[in-house]
Design a protein around this nucleic acid. Structure first.
Lengths: 125, 125
DNA sequence: AAATGTATTCTATATTTGTAGAATATAATT
DNA sequence: AATTATATTCTACAAATATAGAATACATTT
């Protein structure tokens, strides 16, 4: 299941905090802050969706992500690639490298990475 | 402004048709098709958001995208990269190449593309 | 133990989104 | 001219989402 925008925002704060009490998350929000009950509602919904867990400490809970940011991100990417590139990661990659306007330094960095990837693939054989 | 899921679906059909009357879009939908008025409502909303234009032909309209699919996609990517990669396309690219599990053939293809990119960059100097 | 700070749950409302019926309008067909 | 096909607008309602007040509960401080 997917997170809504508001839920995602809470997730993002939690990912950056790694673990947090309601208060800590509320503190992250810029003014005008939402009501604490709003955060509580969102936390509850995110828990129901299985993205957040918690440890009970007295009457409070210490929340922590159950899904890694990169994993959640991967899902989003897959959905975009499916929608816009006919499910082809290669097609996406080629679009991305030509359109993203990376600097020469970035491009060379990328080349190195890809070389390593290819090496790893060959080793696996 | 962003499109909602239902609006995006209509956009996708319109992108693939390039231009279309309501009927043509409706035809693209698989069974069970939505009501024609539903499509009409969505079209109107998308027009208000500025993503679609039209030419009036008698009482009908021939709709066409005002935003290219790749541009719309780029916006989505930017938003994701901003959210998950601290606004660094390079960071994203490196994550992507290591995580996307491209085939060796795809990787080599990518390398070629990037080489060309670098060449183009150098020419521009 | 009373007061205070914080969190949680329950409940509720406003807004946005998805969906479509009814009424209306125009063009093409009979 | 009447009928039919199609599209459009207006209106409406249901579901999902965003937001938060009221009531309640526990822990800490006084």
């Amino acid at each position: 299941m997917q997170l809504t925008k508001a839920e995602e925002q809470v997730m993002k704060y939690l990912w950056s905090l790694e673990k947090a009490y309601l208060k800590n998350i509320l503190d992250e929000f810029p003014e005008p802050k939402p009501a604490a009950t709003t955060i509580a509602t969102l936390l509850k919904r995110i828990i129901d969706k299985g993205f957040i867990g918690y440890k009970q400490h007295g009457s409070n809970r210490e929340y922590y992500p159950l899904v890694k940011k990169t994993d959640y991100f991967s899902l989003q990417m897959k959905s975009i690639i499916k929608d816009y590139f006919n499910n082809s990661a290669a097609q996406f990659a080629s679009f991305f490298t030509t359109e993203s306007d990376l600097s020469e330094k970035d491009l060379k960095e990328l080349q190195k990475l890809i070389s390593e990837q290819i090496k790893t693939k060959n080793k696996a054989k």
